[in-house]
Design a protein around this nucleic acid. Sequence first.
DNA 1: TGATTTATATCACTGGCTTATACAGATATC
DNA 2: GATATCTGTATAAGCCAGTGATATAAATCA
Lengths: 144, 144
Amino acid sequence: MATEIKPDDARIIAGFERFYEALRRLTPRSELSLTAASTLRRLERSGPHRLSELYAPEGVSQPAMTQLVTRLEREGLARRSSDPADGRVVIVSITEEGRDAVARRRDGRARALAELLEQLPEDEHAALLAALPALQRLGDLIID
Amino acid sequence: MATEIKPDDARIIAGFERFYEALRRLTPRSELSLTAASTLRRLERSGPHRLSELYAPEGVSQPAMTQLVTRLEREGLARRSSDPADGRVVIVSITEEGRDAVARRRDGRARALAELLEQLPEDEHAALLAALPALQRLGDLIID
DNA sequence: TGATTTATATCACTGGCTTATACAGATATC
DNA sequence: GATATCTGTATAAGCCAGTGATATAAATCA
């Protein structure tokens, strides 16, 4: 009962909820967990990171990230190296195999979505395009 | 290399991906797992179901659903009952406490989203409203 | 009746998270 | 410069949530 939610916003939110559910269903059991995929994408997007730079943005504990990196390393998707300037530090980077895994995941979902988008009437398709800047901005407001 | 994805579709898909990531981040550690929440929503939306009607749509195995229902029951969020017509069957239904849990989860995310929506410029807000039918239709195409 | 099918449960295991704690390397203090 | 503290990562123990294989009980069919 704190703040009131405007009716239009409520409609948008309900739409998002349903859509989120749908998207989730579109990525069945992948080879990558949500955190694993997100971490690999980050490594791909912005290069090698210290382990300590990874866990907070992913919203997990430091031991969880240590363990995730261990699993990723075991599967050949990421690599540990050391910082010559600081012996405590572990630098994590993505491998070629890791890039492939990310691409496969992205592609699978993209193909499924593209197929659906093709089924939309032209005006709805256009409406989605028009809503992209808003989605982008919302994403920016939420992430990092 | 199967089907080609049109550039506009690729843009929409990239926007979705980012937005999905953002939404995921908006629901931190809840009291409910993704499957638990989704199952409870289903029970709330369309009433009691047999266990066997629940696991496939949720995309988990039958033992996983048995265990989930056991946990939900233990936490007072769902209830098992039997089908008088078939002694093997377990009917699962949501409790009042379960409805409350679903509502709390929905509310938490709704409030966070509403706050963000308020920060959007008017035209982007309008673009989201205009895109709702498309989101709705996409959701329908994907779910069930 | 007896065999088979169906609905759910149990078992043993793995992955992915948590908190608490250990430990090695870096930095600071005296 | 030796010692204490801080920082970055790892390890340990435990829980939750999933898996496949299998057990069990009720229903159905020959």
